[in-house]
Simulated assay, not measured.
Amino acid sequence: MDPRIREHAEVIVDHSIDLSEGDNLVIDAHPQAADLVTALHEFAADRGANPLVVQDRLGERFRRAYLRNRDEFETPSHIEALYEEMDAYIAIKGSDNVTETSDVDPETTAAYQQSQQPLLNERLSKTWCLTQYPAPANAQLAQTSTEGYENFVWDAVLKDWDAVREHQAQMVEILDPADEVRIVSGETTDVTMSVTGNETLNDYGEKNLPGGEVFTAPVPDSVEGEVLFDKPLYHQGREVTDVFLRFEDGEVVEHSAGKNEDLLTEVLSTDDGASRLGELGIGMNRDIDQFSYNMLFDEKMGDTVHMAVGRSYDETVGEDNEQNESAVHVDMIVDMSEDSFIEVDGEVVQRNGTFIFEDGFED
């Protein structure tokens, strides 16, 4: 076993979820991640925890078979009971075919996601971590060799997360007390939103591993303007490119995509909250230096901003503010490296990817 796999497991149990004696641990993993699951069991045994492996959310082959043969769904109470009893949850991304569900009807997927919403809510209420195992299919999607992708993943995961936290805290200090944020990129993106009363979180490798962003929730009805997401995304096994959204009173009133626009339409039609923003995130991890078609990494890239339509995270919504509820949470990315700026309460705090607290900002 590559020694970095055990290092990866150790970061998860000690840094990300702080696994303790007696904890009931659920590990949701694709079979490609068997080595990492094995290492996690070794650490679970050492810490006196109780691990259980499931292959639910990430088992795309049998998910496809199920969704192609059924179109009405209900929340499975036995899975909900499992999540109610667990103390910690680890989801490990990895695939042997990243396009396995590409021929599932988007309406069917949307109906299924709505039925799973109570399960998602229960998982998110517990200690959890989402991470990546460097499987060959994911390397292929990233257009790199298997060894190159392994190096990419573990370089991003095995970091000094305390140093990351300190660096990103400078942006949290700017955004957390703010009222209004404006994002401008070229002539295609100019969008404003209120974040008044909402919390800005510092992601330094706990719930998402790797970490490398600060993020908050827009006030749902405050978003105004237009955004062109010039980085592609992979969703439901299909690539969606050049997503354009226009917002009025917080709602998407016009949308388009260069590729698979029908999938984008289905996402936005999932439920009432799917056509509103649930997250604004600022990528700050410059060690993620290549685009990989994997949002767990891509949204953390330095010189980017991402916005998610759909569900907002509980922790980002202030006590007196409305939470955007949805069965979906779909992140999309804007490149901020050129002809771009972030403005907070009228002050430019990032210009062409450089933050106000970094050398070169005034250049």
Results as ranks from 00 to 15, higher is better:
residue 161 W to C: 03
residue 124 L to E: 15
residue 162 D to F: 06
residue 165 R to C: 07
residue 135 A to T: 02
residue 113 Q to G: 09
residue 140 Q to Y: 12
residue 144 T to A: 07
residue 137 A to R: 13
residue 112 Y to H: 11
residue 164 V to I: 12
residue 152 F to M: 08
residue 161 W to A: 02
residue 162 D to H: 08
residue 116 Q to P: 06
residue 119 L to P: 00
residue 162 D to S: 12
residue 114 Q to V: 13
residue 132 Q to E: 06
residue 122 E to Y: 01
residue 128 W to D: 03
residue 144 T to S: 08
residue 157 V to W: 06
residue 160 D to V: 02
residue 156 A to M: 01
residue 118 P to R: 09
residue 159 K to T: 07
residue 122 E to D: 14
residue 114 Q to P: 15
residue 129 C to D: 01
residue 144 T to D: 01
residue 165 R to F: 10
residue 125 S to F: 04
residue 128 W to N: 06
residue 117 Q to M: 08
residue 122 E to I: 09
residue 159 K to H: 04
residue 113 Q to P: 02
residue 119 L to I: 15
residue 157 V to A: 07
residue 145 S to H: 12
residue 166 E to H: 14
residue 142 A to M: 10
residue 156 A to R: 00
residue 137 A to D: 00
residue 162 D to W: 08
residue 117 Q to R: 15
residue 127 T to P: 02
residue 120 L to G: 15
residue 149 Y to L: 01
residue 123 R to M: 15
residue 116 Q to R: 13
residue 127 T to S: 15
residue 116 Q to H: 05
residue 158 L to V: 07
residue 121 N to Y: 13
residue 153 V to R: 07
residue 137 A to T: 00
residue 137 A to W: 03
residue 129 C to T: 04
residue 132 Q to K: 10
residue 116 Q to C: 05
residue 160 D to L: 03
residue 128 W to S: 08
residue 114 Q to M: 12
residue 129 C to E: 04
residue 142 A to W: 06
residue 118 P to C: 08
residue 125 S to E: 11
residue 112 Y to E: 01
residue 160 D to T: 00
residue 167 H to S: 15
residue 137 A to S: 05
residue 118 P to N: 11
residue 147 E to V: 11
residue 136 P to C: 07
residue 144 T to V: 11
residue 138 N to P: 02
residue 145 S to K: 15
residue 134 P to S: 04
residue 138 N to I: 05
residue 119 L to R: 05
residue 131 T to Y: 04
residue 139 A to I: 02
residue 147 E to K: 13
residue 141 L to G: 03
residue 157 V to E: 05
residue 117 Q to F: 07
residue 113 Q to E: 07
residue 166 E to G: 15
residue 140 Q to I: 06
residue 134 P to C: 02
residue 152 F to Y: 12
residue 166 E to Y: 13
residue 133 Y to N: 03
residue 120 L to R: 14
residue 145 S to C: 07
residue 138 N to H: 07
residue 142 A to D: 00
residue 134 P to E: 02
residue 124 L to N: 13
residue 148 G to N: 10
residue 132 Q to H: 13
residue 146 T to Q: 14
residue 167 H to F: 14
residue 133 Y to E: 05
residue 139 A to G: 04
residue 115 S to E: 06
residue 122 E to V: 11
residue 156 A to K: 02
residue 119 L to G: 01
residue 143 Q to P: 05
residue 126 K to Q: 11
residue 116 Q to V: 09
residue 159 K to F: 01
residue 135 A to G: 09
residue 151 N to C: 05
residue 163 A to I: 07
residue 127 T to D: 12
residue 115 S to H: 03
residue 159 K to A: 00
residue 142 A to I: 09
residue 149 Y to E: 00
residue 113 Q to I: 06
residue 113 Q to F: 05
residue 165 R to H: 15
residue 163 A to C: 07
residue 144 T to C: 05
residue 143 Q to V: 03
residue 111 A to Q: 10
residue 115 S to D: 05
residue 162 D to T: 13
residue 166 E to T: 15
residue 117 Q to C: 06
residue 127 T to A: 14
residue 143 Q to F: 06
residue 127 T to C: 10
residue 138 N to W: 04
residue 147 E to S: 13
residue 140 Q to T: 06
residue 140 Q to L: 11
residue 124 L to Q: 14
residue 158 L to A: 05
residue 133 Y to I: 04
residue 126 K to I: 08
residue 147 E to T: 13
residue 125 S to R: 10
residue 143 Q to D: 08
residue 127 T to L: 13
